[in-house]
């Protein structure tokens, strides 16, 4: 699915969050959005998901304005978005059940998907019984089971430790390669953006504006990002992080 942002504005009352954002995102592209906290990156995802409406401009999915939430565009939240009263299996199955799949099929599919994210054997655990990493694996399974065409990731691994995060980035990368959804990834982690994304958009603070866009399409990447040191440095300095040792 193709996404277009046409001169999108978003205000919450007096607060101007996004101003004049335009961008085309092609089918199967993975675009990472990095920027300071509270700059409106998550709001962009909510606009695509249909949870919010733009105050000005248009958000188009395959040429049609986004009218409301729908299972073709799914959102993965930072954490705590699993239902604590459902087992991991039931959490994943719910994505299918809400679309009318019968319970038995949905649960069978959910078991398959939990296996895909290396959670076989944890079907009957409740979210509070497993680790944060396992919860986010479940959240990924819940997102992919509905075969979305657009995947919106709102700092999906932000609450995880560095090693767990890298393991999950690999899980995510495999799933994306296999299913080829169009992906928007909001992250605070520059390395995560470099590792996963075809394009990285660096945003200013509120109202969000693109400071610079980086193109990494068709780059071979591993967790060793030393080949991208220059870009990494540039992104960090755009975000106001010092990257040079100061000499007195």
């Amino acid at each position: 699915m193709q996404l277009s942002f046409e001169n999108v504005d978003k205000r919450f009352g007096e607060l101007e969050v996004i101003k004049g954002f335009s961008r085309e995102v092609g089918q199967g592209e993975l675009v990472a959005l990095v920027g300071p906290s509270g700059c409106g990156k998550s709001t962009l995802l909510h606009l695509v998901a249909g949870l919010e409406k733009p105050s000005g401009g248009r958000v188009l999915a395959d040429g049609r304005p986004v009218a409301g939430p729908g299972p073709r565009r799914t959102l993965v939240f930072q954490e705590h978005a699993l239902y604590p009263w459902l087992t991991l299996q039931a959490n994943v199955a719910m994505a299918l059940e809400l679309q009318g799949t019968d319970k038995a099929t949905a649960f069978r599919e959910a078991t398959n998907w939990l296996g895909r994210v290396n959670l076989a054997g944890f079907e009957h655990y409740y979210p509070h019984q497993v680790s944060g990493g396992m919860r986010q694996r479940t959240a990924l399974a819940r997102a992919f089971i509905a075969k979305p065409e657009v995947l919106l990731l709102d700092e999906p691994f932000g609450a995880l430790d560095a090693l767990t995060r890298m393991a999950l980035q690999d899980v995510l990368r495999d799933l994306i390669e296999e299913h080829q959804p169009t992906v928007l990834l909001v992250t605070h982690d520059v390395d995560e953006a470099l590792y996963l994304a075809d394009h990285v958009l660096v945003f200013s603070s509120r109202p969000a504006r693109v400071l610079k866009a980086f193109d990494f399409a068709h780059c071979e990447k591993s967790h060793d990002l030393s080949g991208f040191a220059a870009e990494r440095k540039e992104i960090l300095s755009l975000l106001g992080i010092k990257t040079e040792v100061e000499h007195a």
Binding site: A49, P69, P71, A81, M94, A95, L98
Partner: peptide, 14 residues
């Protein structure tokens, strides 16, 4: 009720 629980269900098409 946590807003994220409501949003998650809406995104799944509830």
């Amino acid at each position: 009720v946590q807003p994220v629980h409501v949003s998650a269900a809406r995104v799944m098409g509830a």
